[in-house]
Simulated assay, not measured.
Amino acid sequence: MNLGFERILQVKIPVTDLQRSVNWYRRVFGLRLAWEFGGPDVVTGAVLTDDAERFLIGLRRLDTVPGEPSLAGFDVVSLGVPSVDVLRALAERFDELDVEHGPLFDRGPGGGVQLDVPDPDGTVIRILSPFGEHAPFIGVEFGPDGTHAFYTAPRLQLD
């Protein structure tokens, strides 16, 4: 069923140091500051975007977010790139900028390749190459040693 949604427009990420995070996202991903907001004496949030405004990353000071969530180690968003070559070039850029990142990881049949980059708070920004052809459903089971295996029948009970 098509409900008219075209894309995910914005992702909001809680951060401990707004200034540091704005500078990091601008430097690492080449984003520009599009908006900032807050009270009369303090900026509590910012929105960054690419030049074409295809996507927005909202950053909120953690102390202003209800529940003060921690996303350290969690990949809250995945950004898409057109090829594995672009992922390789990004990994080289991150190395030149001395930015921590994981290795290129092949996600298996039809899953593309990923590159993970933790932001200053440890929230992972995942970057994905295009997916190849795959079945309508693929399950992935991760073993205790990090190896993975694929399965084709959902384990969740679907209504």
Rank of each mutant, 00 (worst) to 15 (best):
L97D: 09
A89I: 06
V22C: 12
S70M: 07
G38F: 05
D51R: 13
S78L: 00
V124I: 13
L3G: 15
Q19D: 11
R107H: 01
L59N: 05
F5I: 09
P14M: 00
D106W: 02
Y151P: 13
V15C: 14
P136R: 06
I127W: 04
D85R: 13
I13P: 07
G58D: 05
Q19H: 12
P109H: 02
R93A: 04
H148N: 10
S129G: 12
A135L: 13
D41C: 10
L9Y: 13
R155H: 12
L33T: 03
R126K: 10
F137P: 04
G73T: 02
H148T: 11
V15N: 09
E100V: 15
L156Q: 12
V81Y: 13
R93D: 08
A89F: 14
Q114G: 12
V113K: 07
G38V: 01
L62K: 08
D85A: 11
D98Q: 14
L33S: 02
Y25F: 14
G132R: 06
S78D: 02
P66S: 01
D145E: 15
F55G: 08
R61V: 01
P136K: 06
K12E: 10
F29M: 05
F94K: 09
I138Y: 05
E133R: 05
M1N: 11
L59C: 05
L104M: 05
F5D: 07
E68T: 15
V99S: 03
D17H: 09
I125A: 00
M1W: 05
D145G: 11
L3Y: 10
R32W: 11
D116P: 07
Y151F: 15
V99P: 08
V86R: 06
G80T: 11
M1C: 11
G139P: 07
A52M: 02
G4H: 05
G4C: 02
F137I: 01
T147F: 03
E68H: 10
Y25Q: 01
T123I: 01
L79N: 10
L90H: 13
P130M: 00
A153I: 10
G80S: 08
G143P: 07
L104V: 13
T16G: 15
P82T: 01
G45T: 00
G132F: 04
Y25W: 09
D121T: 05
I138N: 06
F74M: 13
Y25I: 00
A34M: 09
V99A: 04
V76N: 07
G45L: 01
L3W: 13
R93M: 03
V43L: 12
Q157E: 15
V47C: 05
Q157I: 15
P118R: 09
R126M: 02
A149T: 15
R107M: 03
A149C: 14
L115M: 05
V47N: 02
V28A: 06
L97Q: 11
I13G: 03
G146M: 04
E92M: 06
G38M: 01
F29H: 10
R32P: 06
G39R: 14
G73I: 00
S70P: 06
L90V: 09
F29D: 07
D51M: 08
T152A: 10
E100F: 09
N2V: 08
A72E: 14
P120K: 13
V11N: 05
D41R: 15
W35F: 15
Q114W: 00
V77R: 06
L158N: 09
S83V: 02
A89Q: 15
H101R: 11
G146P: 15
M1D: 10
V22F: 12
T123W: 00
